[in-house]
Simulated scan of single mutants.
Amino acid sequence: MKKTLSLVLTLFLTVGLASAQSSGSEAKIKATGNNNDVTVEQVRGADNNASIWVSGNQNVVSEYQRGDRNQVLLEVAGGSNDAIRSKQMGDDNAIYVNFRGARPAPVFQSNDVDKNDFLFLQVGKENIFGGAVAGDGNSGQFKQYGTGNTLLGDTDLDGDGVDRYDAQGLMIEGHRNTLRGLQQGRLNTGKIMATGNGNHLRFQQKGQQNYGEILVTGDGNTARVTQGQ
């Protein structure tokens, strides 16, 4: 039987509705086990923060933020999760993903994080997305629409001079993974790094004055960067 954990920030707020609308809200969910349905929605105001940690198999994870200067940290330790979705609508938002079975660290700590399906979407300007996926047979895509979006280099998300996570782009480690990326707009920047065999990477940038890069190490990989209209 599937268990549901849901946090809808228009209804349940850690600091009260009036405060959340003006100064932001913080949501944290930790789910351990299998067949969980995890949802976080933060749909009012700005400066919202969400943290989701899932350990197990065959889970469904959904996160949605609407507004500006929102942040989400999504960590997955497990495999065969049915759908992992994160959507942000607004400006200056940040998504960080860690599919490694371990806390963020400068060196990959690969555990069995296999056969996950994921989609990350950002619509706005100067949004940031990055992180790491370690495992085999994962399939996913990211999409950024707007101007000045970044597939991560800078991890100082709140401007205090401290890097939150070790991520210099989107990192893939493992075999037979499939990743599709899209940036649509102007002045977007992206970097994908992959280590392993039989991975399929496609990075498309639509618009002008964009920069894209894929670095691949291993055998039997395919990598493609497409730029233009």
Rank of each mutant, 00 (worst) to 15 (best):
S51L: 03
L5D: 14
V76K: 00
I52N: 11
D37V: 07
A132W: 04
N48C: 04
S25T: 06
G198K: 11
R224F: 02
N70H: 03
R100F: 00
A83M: 05
G16L: 08
N57H: 00
G135H: 01
T195S: 15
A77Y: 06
R69W: 06
V216G: 14
G196S: 04
M171H: 13
K87Y: 11
I172R: 01
S86H: 03
G79R: 00
A18I: 10
N70G: 12
S23F: 08
V43E: 15
L17W: 03
I84Q: 02
R202S: 03
E173P: 08
F129S: 03
I128Q: 15
T178D: 13
R44W: 10
S110W: 12
V225P: 13
L5F: 01
M171L: 03
R69S: 08
R164P: 09
D91V: 02
L157F: 12
R103M: 10
T14L: 05
I84P: 07
L187H: 10
V60T: 11
S80F: 07
A223D: 15
S139C: 03
A223P: 15
L13P: 15
D68N: 10
L7F: 05
S139Y: 01
N81P: 03
S62Q: 03
T226V: 05
K206P: 07
S51N: 14
I172V: 02
G131H: 07
F108S: 05
F99R: 02
T10G: 13
